[in-house]
């Protein structure tokens, strides 16, 4: 690092240059880039831009993308959540497979779901017992919905066939038959049960 290096170009590497470049980069990358993209995104996709909210009779009842807690018998229930479905404290359980606390949580849930739905523990789909990564997974598998169909029908005093029909209608398949898994949006199917979502 001798001063005599003919190509050391110390002028280009001065502290003043670094300060000026840093400030310009902060304004360009941290200011202009997000501002332009956010503005374009808001214009092109206004519904998505503000969290994909579902509005029923002028009231926001939730977001298509955010699961909610359900405990009443007349609703489909979602997956276990390590965050109690609070989007400000999102997170998974982070339990390792070897952690005894995971085993006891599943044992407890498996027992109560088996009783509630009147099925054997080994026929409960895995996703209904496994906590999601986000803690606000809006979906369950169609199998997990079918397990709950009889209880929902009984609580609402409607035929099971009608509930199963609704499950079939609300089951989304993989995109293009390739990307992603089959799934049911719990909030949307529950809104449909309440007659608050129009069928298309």
């Amino acid at each position: 690092m001798t001063e005599s290096n003919s190509v050391a170009a110390n002028r280009s590497a001065s502290w003043l240059t670094a300060v000026r470049a840093a400030i310009v980069f902060v304004l360009l990358c941290g200011g202009l880039y997000p501002l332009l993209v956010t503005t374009a995104g808001k214009v092109m996709f206004p519904h998505q831009a503000f969290g994909s909210m579902i509005i029923v009779d002028d009231i926001a009842v939730g977001s298509e993308l955010v699961g909610q807690p359900f405990t009443a018998p007349e609703y489909f229930h979602g997956r276990p959540s390590a965050a109690n479905y609070d989007p400000f404290s999102v997170g998974g359980s982070n339990y390792a497979a070897s952690n005894p606390d995971l085993r006891s949580r599943i044992a407890e849930d498996s027992d109560s779901i088996a009783q509630r739905e009147g099925v054997a523990p080994d026929s409960i789909p895995v996703d209904l017992l496994a906590a999601s990564g986000s803690g606000i997974d809006p979906h369950i598998s169609p199998e997990s919905a079918i397990v709950q169909a009889e209880r929902v029908a009984k609580a609402r005093d409607i035929p099971v066939s009608r509930v199963n029909e609704l499950i079939a209608r609300y089951t989304e398949g993989p995109t293009l038959g390739i990307f992603g898994q089959r799934r049911v949006n719990v909030l949307r199917i529950n809104l449909a049960l309440d007659g608050k979502e129009s069928f298309d």
Binding site: T38, M44, M53, A60, Y75, D86, L191
Partner: peptide
């Protein structure tokens, strides 16, 4: 963004969850 990732400088949204017996009055 087209798939649903938010794009706004406004603050958090508030929703009234559907099943009010589940213990969450506001989300």
């Amino acid at each position: 963004a087209s798939q649903g990732v938010p794009n706004s400088y406004e603050g958090a949204r508030t929703a009234i969850p559907l099943d009010q017996t589940a213990g969450m009055t506001e989300q």
